[in-house]
Amino acid sequence: MSGAIVIGASGSWARAMLKISPYTFSAIGIAVAIGVSVLGAAWGIYITGSSLIGAAIKAPRITSKNLISVIFCEAVAIYGVIVAIILQTKLESVPGSQMYVPESLRAGYAIFASGIIVGFANLVCGLCVGIIGSSCALSDAQNSSLFVKILVIEIFGSALGLFGVIVGIIMSAQATWPSKV
């Protein structure tokens, strides 16, 4: 294993962490990016959706307008999908001898971190948008002039997920695997 770094005694946690394949990290990163994003989106949609259904009984006019809230939540899942696709394009095969060189490890960690960032940023973003969307549906049913005002708040909430996506994409640019020799 030329070029592989050696940290800690054999049997230590540090060594064990180091010996996890960069591909494992990459795969977990990609899975978290899409999985947790979709969790956030789904969570947001049920919070919004259950309120929207109830509120629409007495004020049917709000249904189509408030679909925007659901779409905002859905967008969060789409961010996750986009980032997962970007991340998986970063995966390249490296020869077994190069598997544990620092560059490989760096690429693996970069994809992992990128996935975590995007996943959790989108989870809280989805929650935030969902809760605001639920309030939006209820207040729109009472007073339709409130819809646009709450929509602005919702857009700001939705931007939070975008920050995660931006940082995640920049982070994944670090993932350069060692070139095949």
Partner: peptide
């Protein structure tokens, strides 16, 4: 909202 969301919206209606 898992259990209460729908009814809360109804009661507000």
């Amino acid at each position: 909202n898992i259990h209460g969301g729908y009814l809360e919206a109804i009661v507000r209606g």
